[in-house]
Computed example of a mutant assay.
Amino acid sequence: MPTGQSPSQAPSRELESPSPRPSPARPAGRRRVSMDDVAQHAGVSAQTVSRVSNGYPGVVESTRRLVLDAMRELGYRPNSAARALKRGEFRTIGVIMSTLATTGNMRTLEAITRAALEQGYAVTLLPPAPAQQEDGGFSRVGEDVVDGVIVVMERHQLDESLLVLPPGMPAVVADTDLAHVYPVVDTDQDAGARSAVAHLLELGHRTVWHVAGPEESFSAGRRANAWRALLQEKGIEAPPMVVGDWTAASGYQAGLRLADEPSCTAVFAANDQMALGILRALHEKGRRVPQDVSVVGFDDNPDSSSYLPPLTTVHQDFSEVGRRCIEIVLALLRSRPPDDAATTVELVPTHLVVRQSTANFRGP
Protein backbone atom coordinates (compact mmCIF):
# COMPACT_ATOMS: atom_id res chain seq x y z
CA MET A 1 0.00 0.00 0.00
CA PRO A 2 1.53 3.46 -0.88
CA THR A 3 3.09 5.42 2.01
CA GLY A 4 0.59 7.63 3.84
CA GLN A 5 -2.53 6.04 2.30
CA SER A 6 -5.08 4.72 4.79
CA PRO A 7 -7.06 1.50 4.12
CA SER A 8 -10.21 3.53 3.46
CA GLN A 9 -8.36 5.43 0.69
CA ALA A 10 -7.22 2.28 -1.13
CA PRO A 11 -8.29 2.07 -4.81
CA SER A 12 -11.06 -0.38 -5.79
CA ARG A 13 -8.57 -2.47 -7.78
CA GLU A 14 -5.91 -3.94 -5.52
CA LEU A 15 -2.88 -3.99 -7.82
CA GLU A 16 -0.33 -3.38 -5.06
CA SER A 17 1.16 -6.00 -2.81
CA PRO A 18 -0.79 -6.33 0.43
CA SER A 19 0.80 -5.48 3.75
CA PRO A 20 2.38 -8.29 5.79
CA ARG A 21 -0.33 -10.35 7.44
CA PRO A 22 -0.55 -10.60 11.20
CA SER A 23 -0.54 -13.98 12.84
CA PRO A 24 -3.89 -15.81 12.47
CA ALA A 25 -6.15 -15.06 15.41
CA ARG A 26 -9.86 -14.60 15.84
CA PRO A 27 -11.02 -11.32 17.39
CA ALA A 28 -11.27 -11.45 21.16
CA GLY A 29 -14.51 -12.63 22.71
CA ARG A 30 -17.42 -14.23 20.93
CA ARG A 31 -18.50 -11.32 18.76
CA ARG A 32 -19.15 -11.87 15.06
CA VAL A 33 -16.12 -11.47 12.83
CA SER A 34 -16.46 -8.23 10.88
CA MET A 35 -15.33 -7.12 7.44
CA ASP A 36 -12.81 -4.80 9.13
CA ASP A 37 -11.34 -7.79 10.98
CA VAL A 38 -10.82 -9.58 7.68
CA ALA A 39 -9.32 -6.47 6.09
CA GLN A 40 -6.86 -6.03 8.96
CA HIS A 41 -5.92 -9.71 8.91
CA ALA A 42 -5.36 -9.74 5.14
CA GLY A 43 -3.64 -6.34 5.07
CA VAL A 44 -6.06 -4.87 2.55
CA SER A 45 -8.85 -2.31 2.60
CA ALA A 46 -12.38 -3.02 3.82
CA GLN A 47 -13.54 -1.98 0.35
CA THR A 48 -11.50 -4.79 -1.18
CA VAL A 49 -12.99 -7.30 1.26
CA SER A 50 -16.46 -6.06 0.29
CA ARG A 51 -15.72 -6.47 -3.41
CA VAL A 52 -14.42 -10.02 -2.88
CA SER A 53 -17.38 -10.92 -0.65
CA ASN A 54 -19.88 -9.71 -3.24
CA GLY A 55 -18.09 -11.26 -6.22
CA TYR A 56 -17.35 -7.98 -7.98
CA PRO A 57 -14.64 -7.87 -10.68
CA GLY A 58 -11.56 -5.68 -10.46
CA VAL A 59 -9.63 -7.55 -7.75
CA VAL A 60 -6.43 -9.24 -8.82
CA GLU A 61 -6.41 -12.98 -8.26
CA SER A 62 -3.61 -13.02 -5.67
CA THR A 63 -5.43 -10.47 -3.52
CA ARG A 64 -8.74 -12.26 -3.91
CA ARG A 65 -7.18 -15.49 -2.69
CA LEU A 66 -5.57 -13.68 0.23
CA VAL A 67 -8.93 -12.26 1.30
CA LEU A 68 -10.67 -15.61 0.95
CA ASP A 69 -7.96 -17.28 3.05
CA ALA A 70 -8.43 -14.62 5.74
CA MET A 71 -12.18 -15.21 5.72
CA ARG A 72 -11.66 -18.92 6.25
CA GLU A 73 -9.05 -18.48 8.96
CA LEU A 74 -11.22 -16.05 10.94
CA GLY A 75 -14.48 -17.85 10.29
CA TYR A 76 -16.01 -14.79 8.61
CA ARG A 77 -19.55 -15.19 7.28
CA PRO A 78 -21.04 -12.41 5.13
CA ASN A 79 -24.29 -10.98 6.46
CA SER A 80 -26.49 -12.29 3.65
CA ALA A 81 -29.66 -10.78 5.13
CA ALA A 82 -28.17 -7.28 5.18
CA ARG A 83 -26.86 -7.72 1.65
CA ALA A 84 -30.26 -8.92 0.51
CA LEU A 85 -32.03 -5.93 2.05
CA LYS A 86 -29.54 -3.60 0.40
CA ARG A 87 -30.15 -5.20 -3.02
CA GLY A 88 -33.89 -5.51 -2.47
CA GLU A 89 -33.82 -9.26 -3.18
CA PHE A 90 -32.83 -12.45 -1.39
CA ARG A 91 -31.89 -14.50 -4.47
CA THR A 92 -33.93 -17.36 -3.06
CA ILE A 93 -36.97 -19.12 -4.54
CA GLY A 94 -39.42 -20.86 -2.24
CA VAL A 95 -40.86 -24.23 -3.25
CA ILE A 96 -44.10 -25.46 -1.69
CA MET A 97 -44.81 -29.16 -2.22
CA SER A 98 -47.79 -31.17 -1.09
CA THR A 99 -45.66 -34.30 -0.68
CA LEU A 100 -42.08 -35.51 -1.03
CA ALA A 101 -43.14 -39.13 -1.23
CA THR A 102 -43.57 -39.39 -5.00
CA THR A 103 -40.79 -39.92 -7.51
CA GLY A 104 -42.24 -37.28 -9.81
CA ASN A 105 -42.22 -34.59 -7.13
CA MET A 106 -38.67 -35.41 -6.08
CA ARG A 107 -37.42 -35.25 -9.66
CA THR A 108 -39.28 -31.97 -10.20
CA LEU A 109 -37.71 -30.51 -7.04
CA GLU A 110 -34.28 -31.65 -8.17
CA ALA A 111 -34.81 -30.02 -11.57
CA ILE A 112 -36.03 -26.75 -10.01
CA THR A 113 -33.04 -26.65 -7.66
CA ARG A 114 -30.57 -27.26 -10.48
CA ALA A 115 -32.17 -24.61 -12.69
CA ALA A 116 -32.20 -22.10 -9.83
CA LEU A 117 -28.51 -22.65 -9.11
CA GLU A 118 -27.70 -22.05 -12.75
CA GLN A 119 -29.37 -18.64 -12.41
CA GLY A 120 -27.54 -17.84 -9.17
CA TYR A 121 -30.52 -18.51 -6.89
CA ALA A 122 -30.94 -20.81 -3.93
CA VAL A 123 -34.07 -22.84 -3.16
CA THR A 124 -35.81 -23.08 0.18
CA LEU A 125 -38.33 -25.86 0.70
CA LEU A 126 -41.42 -25.32 2.80
CA PRO A 127 -42.18 -28.66 4.44
CA PRO A 128 -45.41 -30.31 3.36
CA ALA A 129 -48.35 -29.79 5.68
CA PRO A 130 -51.26 -32.15 6.26
CA ALA A 131 -53.98 -31.67 3.67
CA GLN A 132 -56.39 -30.14 6.17
CA GLN A 133 -53.72 -27.60 7.19
CA GLU A 134 -52.23 -26.93 3.80
CA ASP A 135 -53.13 -23.26 3.93
CA GLY A 136 -50.83 -23.00 6.95
CA GLY A 137 -47.93 -23.97 4.74
CA PHE A 138 -48.86 -21.28 2.25
CA SER A 139 -49.16 -18.59 4.91
CA ARG A 140 -45.52 -19.18 5.87
CA VAL A 141 -44.38 -17.71 2.56
CA GLY A 142 -44.80 -14.22 3.98
CA GLU A 143 -42.46 -15.12 6.85
CA ASP A 144 -39.66 -16.53 4.68
CA VAL A 145 -37.05 -14.52 2.83
CA VAL A 146 -37.89 -15.55 -0.72
CA ASP A 147 -38.20 -13.58 -3.94
CA GLY A 148 -40.73 -15.87 -5.59
CA VAL A 149 -42.61 -19.13 -5.12
CA ILE A 150 -43.09 -22.33 -7.11
CA VAL A 151 -46.01 -24.48 -5.97
CA VAL A 152 -45.91 -28.20 -6.88
CA MET A 153 -49.26 -29.75 -6.01
CA GLU A 154 -50.70 -33.24 -6.16
CA ARG A 155 -54.25 -32.33 -5.27
CA HIS A 156 -56.74 -32.20 -8.11
CA GLN A 157 -58.44 -28.83 -8.58
CA LEU A 158 -56.71 -27.23 -5.63
CA ASP A 159 -59.02 -24.69 -3.99
CA GLU A 160 -57.41 -21.35 -4.87
CA SER A 161 -58.68 -19.92 -1.58
CA LEU A 162 -56.03 -22.04 0.13
CA LEU A 163 -53.27 -20.62 -2.05
CA VAL A 164 -52.88 -17.31 -0.21
CA LEU A 165 -49.59 -15.67 -1.17
CA PRO A 166 -48.32 -12.23 -0.17
CA PRO A 167 -49.48 -9.44 -2.54
CA GLY A 168 -47.08 -9.04 -5.45
CA MET A 169 -45.28 -12.32 -4.78
CA PRO A 170 -44.23 -13.86 -8.13
CA ALA A 171 -45.63 -17.39 -8.27
CA VAL A 172 -45.72 -20.32 -10.68
CA VAL A 173 -47.76 -23.49 -10.20
CA ALA A 174 -46.73 -26.93 -11.48
CA ASP A 175 -48.83 -30.07 -11.81
CA THR A 176 -52.27 -28.61 -11.14
CA ASP A 177 -55.03 -26.64 -12.85
CA LEU A 178 -54.94 -23.07 -11.53
CA ALA A 179 -54.16 -21.47 -14.89
CA HIS A 180 -56.86 -18.86 -14.33
CA VAL A 181 -54.99 -17.66 -11.22
CA TYR A 182 -51.26 -18.29 -11.74
CA PRO A 183 -48.96 -19.31 -14.61
CA VAL A 184 -48.79 -23.10 -14.88
CA VAL A 185 -45.97 -25.35 -16.08
CA ASP A 186 -46.88 -28.98 -16.60
CA THR A 187 -45.95 -32.07 -18.54
CA ASP A 188 -48.28 -32.69 -21.48
CA GLN A 189 -50.17 -35.37 -19.57
CA ASP A 190 -52.81 -35.86 -22.26
CA ALA A 191 -50.41 -36.39 -25.15
CA GLY A 192 -48.21 -38.69 -23.08
CA ALA A 193 -51.07 -40.96 -22.02
CA ARG A 194 -52.46 -41.04 -25.55
CA SER A 195 -49.09 -42.11 -26.94
CA ALA A 196 -48.99 -45.03 -24.48
CA VAL A 197 -52.51 -46.23 -25.31
CA ALA A 198 -52.04 -45.73 -29.05
CA HIS A 199 -48.84 -47.78 -28.97
CA LEU A 200 -50.64 -50.74 -27.37
CA LEU A 201 -53.55 -50.55 -29.80
CA GLU A 202 -51.15 -50.38 -32.76
CA LEU A 203 -49.64 -53.63 -31.52
CA GLY A 204 -53.03 -55.25 -32.09
CA HIS A 205 -54.37 -55.37 -28.53
CA ARG A 206 -58.15 -55.19 -28.50
CA THR A 207 -58.29 -52.93 -25.46
CA VAL A 208 -56.05 -51.39 -22.83
CA TRP A 209 -56.55 -51.67 -19.08
CA HIS A 210 -55.45 -48.78 -16.89
CA VAL A 211 -53.96 -48.62 -13.40
CA ALA A 212 -54.49 -45.00 -12.37
CA GLY A 213 -52.88 -42.84 -9.72
CA PRO A 214 -54.79 -41.55 -6.68
CA GLU A 215 -58.07 -39.74 -7.28
CA GLU A 216 -56.85 -36.49 -5.72
CA SER A 217 -53.94 -36.21 -8.16
CA PHE A 218 -54.31 -33.81 -11.07
CA SER A 219 -51.76 -35.73 -13.16
CA ALA A 220 -53.49 -39.05 -12.51
CA GLY A 221 -56.82 -37.57 -13.55
CA ARG A 222 -55.45 -36.15 -16.79
CA ARG A 223 -53.80 -39.45 -17.73
CA ALA A 224 -56.94 -41.46 -16.94
CA ASN A 225 -59.12 -39.08 -18.95
CA ALA A 226 -56.80 -39.35 -21.95
CA TRP A 227 -56.79 -43.17 -21.73
CA ARG A 228 -60.58 -43.30 -21.66
CA ALA A 229 -61.03 -40.68 -24.39
CA LEU A 230 -58.73 -42.41 -26.88
CA LEU A 231 -60.47 -45.77 -26.39
CA GLN A 232 -63.83 -44.09 -26.98
CA GLU A 233 -62.52 -42.42 -30.13
CA LYS A 234 -61.53 -45.88 -31.41
CA GLY A 235 -64.96 -47.27 -30.57
CA ILE A 236 -63.60 -49.40 -27.72
CA GLU A 237 -65.35 -49.64 -24.39
CA ALA A 238 -62.94 -48.86 -21.59
CA PRO A 239 -62.41 -51.71 -19.10
CA PRO A 240 -62.92 -51.01 -15.38
CA MET A 241 -60.17 -48.70 -14.12
CA VAL A 242 -58.00 -49.88 -11.22
CA VAL A 243 -56.85 -47.13 -8.84
CA GLY A 244 -53.45 -47.20 -7.14
CA ASP A 245 -51.49 -44.70 -5.07
CA TRP A 246 -48.29 -44.30 -7.17
CA THR A 247 -46.42 -46.98 -5.16
CA ALA A 248 -45.05 -50.28 -6.43
CA ALA A 249 -47.06 -52.00 -3.69
CA SER A 250 -50.34 -50.67 -5.09
CA GLY A 251 -49.23 -51.69 -8.58
CA TYR A 252 -48.57 -55.17 -7.28
CA GLN A 253 -52.10 -55.45 -5.87
CA ALA A 254 -53.53 -54.15 -9.13
CA GLY A 255 -51.40 -56.60 -11.08
CA LEU A 256 -52.70 -59.55 -9.04
CA ARG A 257 -56.23 -58.51 -9.96
CA LEU A 258 -55.45 -57.99 -13.64
CA ALA A 259 -53.60 -61.29 -13.89
CA ASP A 260 -56.91 -63.03 -13.25
CA GLU A 261 -58.58 -61.19 -16.16
CA PRO A 262 -58.19 -63.42 -19.26
CA SER A 263 -59.05 -60.49 -21.54
CA CYS A 264 -56.26 -58.35 -20.11
CA THR A 265 -53.40 -58.39 -22.61
CA ALA A 266 -52.30 -54.75 -22.34
CA VAL A 267 -51.89 -52.47 -19.31
CA PHE A 268 -51.11 -48.77 -19.14
CA ALA A 269 -49.85 -47.83 -15.67
CA ALA A 270 -49.97 -44.17 -14.64
CA ASN A 271 -46.37 -44.27 -13.42
CA ASP A 272 -43.31 -46.51 -13.55
CA GLN A 273 -43.42 -47.47 -9.87
CA MET A 274 -46.86 -49.03 -10.21
CA ALA A 275 -45.73 -50.67 -13.46
CA LEU A 276 -42.91 -52.29 -11.49
CA GLY A 277 -45.42 -53.83 -9.08
CA ILE A 278 -47.56 -54.99 -11.99
CA LEU A 279 -44.58 -56.77 -13.57
CA ARG A 280 -43.91 -58.65 -10.35
CA ALA A 281 -47.55 -59.68 -9.90
CA LEU A 282 -47.87 -60.91 -13.49
CA HIS A 283 -44.67 -62.92 -13.11
CA GLU A 284 -45.91 -64.54 -9.90
CA LYS A 285 -49.20 -65.41 -11.60
CA GLY A 286 -47.48 -67.02 -14.58
CA ARG A 287 -48.45 -64.28 -17.06
CA ARG A 288 -45.42 -63.55 -19.22
CA VAL A 289 -44.45 -60.00 -20.20
CA PRO A 290 -44.64 -59.18 -23.05
CA GLN A 291 -45.70 -62.52 -24.55
CA ASP A 292 -48.99 -62.66 -22.63
CA VAL A 293 -49.40 -59.10 -21.35
CA SER A 294 -47.81 -55.87 -22.56
CA VAL A 295 -47.12 -53.16 -19.97
CA VAL A 296 -46.45 -49.45 -20.43
CA GLY A 297 -45.52 -46.99 -17.66
CA PHE A 298 -45.25 -43.22 -17.36
CA ASP A 299 -42.25 -41.12 -16.16
CA ASP A 300 -39.23 -42.94 -17.63
CA ASN A 301 -37.51 -43.19 -14.27
CA PRO A 302 -33.74 -43.79 -14.40
CA ASP A 303 -34.30 -47.41 -13.28
CA SER A 304 -37.06 -48.26 -15.74
CA SER A 305 -34.58 -49.50 -18.33
CA SER A 306 -33.37 -52.03 -15.73
CA TYR A 307 -36.78 -53.54 -14.96
CA LEU A 308 -37.32 -57.14 -16.03
CA PRO A 309 -38.15 -56.78 -18.84
CA PRO A 310 -36.99 -53.21 -19.54
CA LEU A 311 -40.08 -51.01 -19.38
CA THR A 312 -41.74 -49.24 -22.28
CA THR A 313 -42.73 -45.88 -20.80
CA VAL A 314 -43.63 -42.26 -21.46
CA HIS A 315 -40.66 -39.97 -20.91
CA GLN A 316 -41.25 -36.84 -18.84
CA ASP A 317 -38.69 -34.05 -19.20
CA PHE A 318 -38.42 -33.02 -15.55
CA SER A 319 -35.35 -30.88 -16.28
CA GLU A 320 -37.35 -28.79 -18.72
CA VAL A 321 -40.24 -28.43 -16.26
CA GLY A 322 -37.82 -27.16 -13.61
CA ARG A 323 -36.10 -24.81 -16.05
CA ARG A 324 -39.37 -23.29 -17.25
CA CYS A 325 -40.66 -22.84 -13.68
CA ILE A 326 -37.52 -20.92 -12.76
CA GLU A 327 -37.52 -18.88 -15.98
CA ILE A 328 -41.14 -17.80 -15.51
CA VAL A 329 -40.88 -16.94 -11.81
CA LEU A 330 -37.72 -14.89 -12.46
CA ALA A 331 -39.39 -13.13 -15.39
CA LEU A 332 -42.28 -12.23 -13.09
CA LEU A 333 -39.83 -11.06 -10.46
CA ARG A 334 -37.98 -8.80 -12.86
CA SER A 335 -40.97 -7.35 -14.71
CA ARG A 336 -43.46 -7.11 -11.81
CA PRO A 337 -46.58 -7.40 -14.02
CA PRO A 338 -49.91 -6.07 -12.72
CA ASP A 339 -52.14 -8.39 -10.71
CA ASP A 340 -54.54 -8.81 -13.63
CA ALA A 341 -51.84 -9.88 -16.08
CA ALA A 342 -52.90 -12.79 -18.28
CA THR A 343 -51.84 -16.17 -16.95
CA THR A 344 -50.35 -18.89 -19.11
CA VAL A 345 -50.10 -22.65 -19.36
CA GLU A 346 -46.87 -24.13 -20.64
CA LEU A 347 -46.95 -27.82 -21.54
CA VAL A 348 -43.62 -29.63 -21.74
CA PRO A 349 -43.72 -32.31 -24.46
CA THR A 350 -43.39 -36.04 -23.74
CA HIS A 351 -42.29 -38.93 -25.92
CA LEU A 352 -42.74 -42.68 -25.78
CA VAL A 353 -39.66 -44.82 -25.09
CA VAL A 354 -40.25 -48.33 -26.48
CA ARG A 355 -38.40 -51.13 -24.71
CA GLN A 356 -39.05 -54.85 -24.18
CA SER A 357 -42.22 -54.82 -22.04
CA THR A 358 -44.56 -54.49 -25.05
CA ALA A 359 -45.11 -56.76 -28.05
CA ASN A 360 -47.65 -57.62 -30.75
CA PHE A 361 -50.91 -59.19 -29.57
CA ARG A 362 -50.71 -62.99 -29.94
CA GLY A 363 -54.21 -63.99 -28.96
CA PRO A 364 -56.89 -65.54 -31.16
Rank of each mutant, 00 (worst) to 15 (best):
P2M: 10
P262S: 04
D340W: 00
L178H: 10
Q273R: 15
Q157V: 01
A259R: 08
P309T: 11
C264V: 02
H199S: 09
P302V: 08
V123Q: 05
A171M: 11
D340A: 09
L282I: 08
V67M: 11
P214K: 08
W246G: 00
T63H: 01
Q132T: 11
Y56S: 12
A10F: 07
P20C: 03
L276Q: 02
V345E: 14
F218Y: 15
V293N: 06
D292V: 12
V38T: 03
I278W: 00
E154Q: 15
L117D: 09
S357T: 01
S98P: 09
N271Y: 13
G55V: 11
G363E: 10
I93L: 07
R13M: 00
I278S: 01
S23T: 11
G136R: 10
P290S: 03
S195L: 05
P349W: 13
V208H: 08
N225E: 13
R31N: 10
T187E: 02
F218K: 03
R26C: 08
S80G: 00
L352I: 13
P27E: 04
H180G: 10
T265R: 13
P262R: 03
S8M: 10
A101N: 14
V293G: 07
T344Y: 02
M35I: 15
T313F: 07
I278T: 06
D36T: 15
Q316D: 07
G104H: 11
T187H: 08
R155H: 14
G58M: 03
G168Y: 05
H205D: 03
R30N: 12
L109W: 00
A342V: 08
R91T: 07
S304F: 10
S19E: 07
T187L: 02
D317H: 12
T247N: 12
I278F: 02
M106T: 14
P214I: 09
S294Y: 06
P18T: 01
P364R: 05
R323D: 10
R65M: 15
G75Y: 11
L178A: 14
R87D: 04
A198T: 08
K234Q: 15
R83Y: 04
F361T: 08
V151Q: 02
D69L: 09
P57E: 08
L162W: 08
Q119C: 09
Q132A: 14
V164I: 04
K86H: 12
D303M: 15
L74Y: 05
R107N: 01
R107C: 06
N225S: 13
L330Y: 04
R334G: 13
L125A: 08
T312D: 01
R323N: 11
A174T: 10
G244Y: 04
A129N: 10
L279A: 04
G297W: 07
V197N: 00
